[in-house]
Simulated assay, not measured.
Amino acid sequence: MTEEYNLDKVVERLCGNGHAIASRRFRGDAPMPSVDTLSEIVEDLRSVLFPGYYGPSEITPATLPYSVGSTLDRVERNLADQINRGYCFVCDREGRERCADCEQRALTTARKFIMALPDIREMLLGDVEAAYDGDPAAKTHGETIFCYPSIRALTNHRIAHELHRLDVDIIPRIISEMAHSDTGIDIHPGATIGKRFFIDHGTGTVIGETCVIGENVRIYQGVTLGAKSFPKGEGDQLIKGLPRHPIVEDDAIVYAGATILGRVTIGRGAVIGGNVWITRDVPAGASVVQSRAMRYAFENGGGI
């Protein structure tokens, strides 16, 4: 027999104290980070990093400084607020005492991030060049900026990585997951990625937190740069932050569907073929490919 409908009982169970993970417990009135606001910040930054491609389409050389300046003024205020919310979120979740200078610290961090934007743009321009040079289907550099999921994902990543480097709580991860949802490319903000990086097609790519990728590296869709194992400490809890993902050195190429696990090194200029499984170091200049398929011809059932 179906239990009688009782809304009060459902609300009581959902709001009870038995599921602390599902429900955030506030100390004071600190608001949560806003995904909508962070999305607006990232789009503002995209318009600053690639003006004319994103943001107002009527930008001219004469109005560009005003547009960039006013956008960054808005980014400074919104980002500082979101960074502060991230600090409070982690403090509340971990039961820490609130610091007295979080708002000022958040503003200082937002300004440090804005000061890094010219360097971030230089890195992204190298990524655009790598995409254009590495794909014969690309007709213009602008096409790669507008259309390529690699550039969209790397824009989010290079923003998120700088915030991660500045010890910002939770906000970098949210920004990375925005790109993951948009493009199918999953890059942890902790991953270190060098100049002129290109992910061709990109869907299904996974790059772990402690990956170190050199310069002029190219990978294809479905590549996993992941962890092989997860060491545990006291209480059978996973030990966080250990280097557990691959190092991919300069000029390496990793083809579609390859899986590389653990703290292994793919040497400079190495080529990793499609759908291979790597758990050991690969020397510089080496090629690792699948064995050739054997072809047999049978007649009248012979040999079967």
Score class of each variant (00 low, 15 high):
8 D>A: 11
10 V>G: 11
15 C>P: 00
21 I>H: 09
23 S>Y: 06
34 S>I: 08
34 S>Q: 10
37 T>P: 02
38 L>E: 10
52 G>H: 03
54 Y>M: 08
65 P>S: 09
68 V>L: 11
77 R>A: 13
78 N>K: 14
79 L>F: 10
80 A>D: 10
98 R>T: 08
101 D>C: 07
105 R>M: 03
106 A>D: 06
108 T>L: 01
114 I>R: 00
117 L>H: 08
119 D>R: 10
120 I>M: 14
122 E>N: 14
123 M>A: 14
125 L>E: 13
127 D>E: 10
130 A>D: 08
132 Y>H: 11
132 Y>F: 15
142 G>N: 01
151 I>C: 03
156 N>V: 00
157 H>S: 04
158 R>Q: 03
164 H>Y: 11
169 D>R: 11
171 I>Q: 13
174 I>R: 00
175 I>V: 08
175 I>C: 03
177 E>G: 07
191 A>Y: 07
191 A>R: 05
196 R>V: 06
197 F>W: 06
197 F>Q: 04
203 T>Q: 07
204 G>A: 13
208 G>R: 02
211 C>N: 04
219 I>Q: 01
220 Y>I: 07
223 V>N: 02
223 V>I: 06
224 T>G: 00
224 T>S: 02
231 P>W: 12
232 K>L: 12
237 Q>D: 14
245 H>K: 01
246 P>L: 03
253 I>H: 07
258 A>T: 03
259 T>H: 00
261 L>H: 09
262 G>S: 07
267 G>M: 12
269 G>I: 05
274 G>P: 02
276 V>P: 09
282 V>H: 04
282 V>N: 02
290 Q>S: 12
290 Q>V: 01
296 Y>T: 15
299 E>W: 00
300 N>S: 12
301 G>M: 11
304 I>S: 12
